[in-house]
Design a protein around this nucleic acid. Sequence first.
DNA 1: GCCCGCATCGTTATACTGTAACACACATCG
DNA 2: CGATGTGTGTTACAGTATAACGATGCGGGC
Lengths: 172, 172
Amino acid sequence: MAAGQGSASGTDGQDTPAPDVAHALAAADARCARAGAQLTELRRQVLGLVLESDQPLGAYALLDKLKALRPGAAPPTVYRALDFLLEQGLIHKVERLNAFVGCVEAGHDHAHGHDHHHPHQFLICRDCGTTVEISDHAVAHALEAAAQRVGFTAIQATVEIEGRCATCSAAA
Amino acid sequence: MAAGQGSASGTDGQDTPAPDVAHALAAADARCARAGAQLTELRRQVLGLVLESDQPLGAYALLDKLKALRPGAAPPTVYRALDFLLEQGLIHKVERLNAFVGCVEAGHDHAHGHDHHHPHQFLICRDCGTTVEISDHAVAHALEAAAQRVGFTAIQATVEIEGRCATCSAAA
DNA sequence: GCCCGCATCGTTATACTGTAACACACATCG
DNA sequence: CGATGTGTGTTACAGTATAACGATGCGGGC
Ligand SMILES: [Zn+2]
Ligand SMILES: [Zn+2]
Ligand SMILES: [Zn+2]
Ligand SMILES: [Zn+2]
């Protein structure tokens, strides 16, 4: 059942056998089952495409890739799948890039048994575009404290730090 | 000289004599002069419109308002002005809303003699939409520390906290 | 004065991002 | 069987942002 994407390795010209992607998909499946949500084939395909990419993917870039698997795909096709995956906490949106990335914690079955939406932050390199997700508790606490200081009840925070990654810093 | 916008108070049906807006515009003028940048009439008009609003304004909402002052205005007209104002640190963009707000620190001539781009965070109320800018040092330090912990050099951070403002919390 | 380069702005067209609305297939339940 | 709910296909559109080219105006070198 998990098979079916045998074409993935040859489709984009890159060898992406994606062993960890398969693992992440299985974890996503389990997680959705627990939440009473259906990870349909379409949603799994979109999630797979997001996970296969090492960079954030825009909705339309995703749509182009999806069309290879699903010729009739249109914007709502991908946006609806993205909405579902966002709600399940399987992916995040990078607001500065209008793009989507897989949640690094989604693979950890254990961790938070609760539904979703863990605090997270992004580090976006201006030179190479690499975007990494971190989950820094000190940052989360500082945000919560800053909000409470003015009587604000924080529910969710978008934190996206732009700068230079270690690799690009070393190159300069 | 500050006159010329006598129509402002009657244009949108609200009485917005905007005494502090005039002050902020004067401060912006001084600041641009110091930076060797030209706060032209167009840019001052756009800045004025942003400052007059107590809520974040989208580029096209801004364009609509600008058309009253400048009938030929088109998208590039407002986007170019916004780019300038962003570079000068006179306004900020709220990424989650695709909207722009005046910088609360822009009025403070004193403060940072340096050019621009102070660390800041937004508190966005989900109920009433009110968006408040704060500049919390603890948050800024936590972000810097989190970045350095993974060898990342932070240059600028987007921090937008969604939740419920004090007023809306009390109402519930 | 004249030419040139630069910054600003006007204008048109287009690209990119995201949704509304309606139809159909299917599953579940009374 | 009809009703309801979810997921998807399909068309059209709304909202956000930029590319490209031209015109103007101003300052500096010749
Ligand atoms: Zn995550
Ligand atoms: Zn880099
Ligand atoms: Zn500010
Ligand atoms: Zn509120």
